[in-house]
Design a binder for these strands. Structure first.
Lengths: 165, 165
DNA sequence: TCTATTTGTTAGACAAGCCTAACAACGTCC
DNA sequence: GGACGTTGTTAGGCTTGTCTAACAAATAGA
């Protein structure tokens, strides 16, 4: 139950990228991992050696890169953190996708399981609220505050404007 | 206007700690910086050399450590990020102070100016809402959702319970 | 099939940030 | 004012994660 691995951000990034490439292209190759992460193939090689020793990837010379079950779990966890952070930044804080993505990439290595769990709940709460009734009225009020700097008591107007997306 | 310094998290931590020690003790000494950050004095020395070269601290052998104006600005920025993240984690997400502090320490190096600004607005929005009227009703609803997993249409009950602090 | 291009591997260097261990300055207390 | 404990400094080493450059394997084209 306890994730006592203490993986570095870099290694988490490698796992995440491998998982992503496998999802997109069915296979992950050294070169593609490198270009995704903007590092040289030799760095990828060193990382794969590291991750193999930790039992997170399966790799043999000149072959494709694969994740072990454990590796997949770690990758999924990182991706989940990324996703929830991205949602929070874009949907709640209304941050542009580019900046939000960048920040999510860095923050995903910094948040605890606890914060991830609570933030997930928060996003669920927001998304449920956006399902039609007025329980996420506050989000609209926040966006109004963001734009104008003024707090208003927007009494649930009947006319919704599905802003953006 | 543009912060093109690209300071490492470690160096940001040093600046933040120096500012904190100065605020608490009026002076910052090598040894105290080291124990605050759980690193050895020799590491502090190396960091001070680095930060001096960058024009962020003023330090002469065997003396006290001081921040330059620029150094103070950077430290303040980091502290501001820390504070707003801590507030978000504790007040909005209801995360325990210990975990929230740890996370804030890591996240403070990961968020952009943009995210800091929006999150600050969000916290303002929440705090204004908590000032007495029911505009932060949603936060109470979220906390209810956190506890019970159920969404309710808590129609602004007159009886507030100022839960914890 | 042979050769050219692409892809992968290895060795060796380097920077950041930490450490230990030995040494130097400081301050204090008889 | 000298000896000692504390604090600061320096040298040198280690780890992580990156790079370049040279080499090796694989693949594709003619």
């Amino acid at each position: 139950m306890k994730a006592c691995d203490e993986l570095s951000s870099s290694m988490e990034d490698y796992l995440e990228t491998i998982a992503l490439l496998k999802k997109e292209n069915d296979v992950a190759r050294v070169r593609d991992i490198g270009s995704s992460l903007a590092v040289k193939s030799s760095s990828v090689n060193a990382a794969l050696k590291n991750l193999s020793q930790k039992g997170l990837v399966v790799y043999e010379r000149y072959g494709y890169v694969n994740l072990t079950t454990k590796g997949e779990e770690v990758a999924a966890k990182v991706q989940d953190k990324h996703d929830v952070l991205l949602k929070f930044l874009t949907k709640v804080l209304s941050i542009d996708n580019d900046i939000a993505s960048e920040d999510a990439c860095k923050m995903e290595h910094a948040i605890s399981a606890e914060t991830f769990a609570k933030l997930s709940k928060f996003i669920q709460f927001v998304e449920i609220g956006m399902g039609g009734d007025n329980s996420a009225e506050w989000l609209k009020r926040f966006n109004h505050y963001l734009r104008t700097g003024k707090i208003v008591e927007m009494q649930s107007t009947a006319s919704y404007r599905s802003k953006g997306r």
